[in-house]
Design a protein around this nucleic acid. Sequence first.
RNA 1: GCGCCAGUAGCUCAGUUGGCUAGAGCACACCGCUGAUAACGGUGAGGUCGAUGGUUCGAGUCCAUUCUGGCGCACCA
Length: 941
Amino acid sequence: MPEKPDYKATLNLPRTSFPMKANLAQAEPATLKRWQSQGMADAVAKAREAAPAFVFHDGPPYANGSIHVGHLLNKVLKDFVVRTAIMEGRRCHYIPGWDCHGLPIEHRVMTGLVESGKAAKLETLSADHRRMAIRRECAAYAEKFIKTQAVQMQRLLTLADYDHPYYTMQPEYEAGTLEVFAVLLERGFVFRQLKPVHWSIANRTALAEAELEYEDRVDPSIFVDCEACDRERVNAAFSTQCECTPSFMIWTTTPWTLPANLAIAVHPREQYALCEMDGALTVIAASLVEKVAKVVGAESVSVKAHALGSALVGLEYRHPLCDRLGRIVAAEYVTMEDGTGLVHTAPGHGEDDYRTGLREGLPIYCPVKDDGTFDETAPEWLHGKDVWAGNVLVIERLKSSGHLVHALQFTHSYPHDWRSRTPVIFRATEQWFIGVDRPGNHGGSSLRTMALEVVNSSVKFFPEWGRNRLRGMLDSRPDWCISRQRSWGLPIPAFSLPDGTAFMTSASVRAVAKCIKTAGSDAWFTMSPAQLLADYDLAADPAAPDGLDLSTLTKMHDIFDVWFEAGSSWNSVMRARSLGYPSALYLEGSDQHRGWFQLSLLPALGVTGQAPFEALVTHGFLVDKDGRKMAKSLGNALEVDTLLKDFGAEVARWWVSSVSYDGDIRIDLDFFRVAGDSYRKVRNTLRFLLSNLFDAPAWSADEALKMALAAPRESLCGWLLGELSQLERDVRAAFAEYDFRRAHLAIFNFCNDTLSAGFCVAAKDRLYCDSADSPRRRHAQAAMRITMEVLCRLLAPFLPHTAEEAWMALRGEGAPLLFAQTHLGISRERDERWAAVRAAVASVTKALEVAKEMGIDNPLDAGVTVPDPQGVLAPFLPELADLCGISQVTLDRAGASVVVRDLRTDESAQRCDRSWRRDGTVKRRADGGLLSDRDAAVVGV
RNA sequence: GCGCCAGUAGCUCAGUUGGCUAGAGCACACCGCUGAUAACGGUGAGGUCGAUGGUUCGAGUCCAUUCUGGCGCACCA
């Protein structure tokens, strides 16, 4: 028996250097290094030099700590935007930024200084020197983490101008921020007003929430009667005819704030009772009568009448300590849990009281000085006494005047200064504000009006509900308090006049800005007022007060709210660097509706009258796989380093592209495994295409496209081209709407279904067994080449490393830069007849499944007859066997269902030794092998 | 407590203006291939659409209430 010829060597089997295993954790850092050394960012910029710009602007993350998965999500989504814009042929100069100033850093630095004992030494320095010492530490801290984060962000394969980033602490940036401020000042949006803040008496400074420690403290708790002014109006409110004058009973744990009492707040929809308590007529919340009676030890109580809180509003009472009247006001925050349901209101000593005071037009009265003692506006028996002594004196006074109903000791949690561990007080101080309801003096509307207008009409929102959310927040936001009493920040360049009033005009701000632009904001702490105002021309400043003597000025020491700095980036970065204004897009987490989105919008409208962004994209927050928020303290936080080590940046990016980012995003290691599987599927599909192009002619992309389009529409290649063209359109449309998930799914399904399960399986026979240069094979190769060209471009935004790796495998040495390419824009309409063909293939597959049970395991052993009553399948007949993965197909216009034949029992359908197919032409050839006509011809026997 | 958002197969998600036996991918199970091979192909099972009530001939889809979770705000004299 002659030895059977081995035909394997005569086949065109696939070959490629593109590895099946991506090995991303090692390969990505190498790619990154190559990009950096060959100046990828510059090369891309150069390729798009003359292209129309896509203006995209980075919201600055805070320069604190390592990046977490939230940064990963945000930065990767932004990179998708950048890279999709570039692949669309746009110029996208993307500048990464960092927010550097602010309390979190200063707080950490201070904690470090306290722990190392250096803080005590600071106390010996002058105020400016102390501030400078702190600022130097803070700047070093910020720089350190900027460096760390920049490396980590680049490791995510993000494309940005990392050589020229922006920091809010850069001198030019600071000057740009002051420029925004100067215009707002000029237009009358800025004003100074009292506002209560947490105040440390020991350190004579305002404190932020983070600087407070809550500790238990024992304070006096007192019930005080405030006598009504007009008995008849009270009688009217309760529909009674009492002969005595009633009192309103209030409760407080800070008796020292009573001298600042200007009002009593009631809940408008709660019931209040007029009752007789041990002979005195008193008003208390109805639901609290019993409780209060018990606490104050009343012996007899009887309720005379009820009235709604709203009926009491407007009534007046005599202040129990001072010679003035107060009035009853309504407030929603009044509760029935403690006290009397009538809340002592001192707008200078409490946040709620303050807002109520503003609303009611009450003065923000604060008779307490920065050293914690009463000033001369307080009753004279309190002058010079501190507030804690004031507590005792007030109680004594109330007792002797008969206003004190009851006093007891009360233990509660009370805020303390974290450094001196002394109790803090709420004290009104002068702060700077940007008014949202002031019309401005340049004839425009208020910031709120302008903001609502652009949010309602011109700004685009992705997703759309962002509009609603931002609108709601703009509706309810109060004036913006932009001053902070700290060291680490951009100084508000205001000076103090001898009479204590503030001096600051747009011209003086611009003069200071000039210093800061060269010397940085440190200049404020190292230079004298005269030096800072060297460029200020008093005579030319109409806004300066009459008779101003510059030599009498001293520097004030408030700094800006960091949000004002970040909110000026459209000017400090985009306009200062001539990158274009407004931005096409801001993209941040949904928390930035309150933060950066809103606080960029307001200053920008005040200065330019235009929103700084044309569209807003928001993403949700990452939560764990059970939908719980992620936190280190909960132990459910994923480390970015772990992800990169175990999966690589591209699997992470592939995962990001797969999520629906509006709303919460669940994240778990398992999801990365899924993304990894899906990535591998795509990679293998690319590999199959590449490996079958090993001997393809050196077509240009145009030539390949022409070749592929020349294949008959009824051929496998004709079908693929239609699908490919559709894919390209779908993905680009999804990109345009920032719907990355839709793009991801379209690409994956194309690779998985159209290619892997469809085209690749069907094309194998011609690729492997046809003669190398048969037209059929070359058409297939041309189609595959074009498919690769398109896929590399479509994948590039998601998988820059893999897309480039495939691109170089495709184009070989000297391949042009992938990111200098643009989409091909293949125009080939889908041929609708293919729907019928795909349906026929599906019915054959089904039939084969049944045939398996009859023993036909291998589809190549099957021949099939397919019904084709309308004759639509006829033109596709030459491709049907390959499409079904079987050996023979015949069509039957009279057939009703698919009929499967077992070709193993058919003498005329032997198996070809080379192609393994039973196409009916197989016979013994000269070399002793069983070959079909096609294979015999290829082998040459 | 207030505003915005989400709740559909084990997991991630589609379900357009109310009209289907509620779909897809993954995972899973089973089968095939062994010339994409630590690959590839096929088939299959899986859901009372968070809960309750209502509008309607008809609701995953509209309305009300409620539960769970997320973001932001407020949180007490």
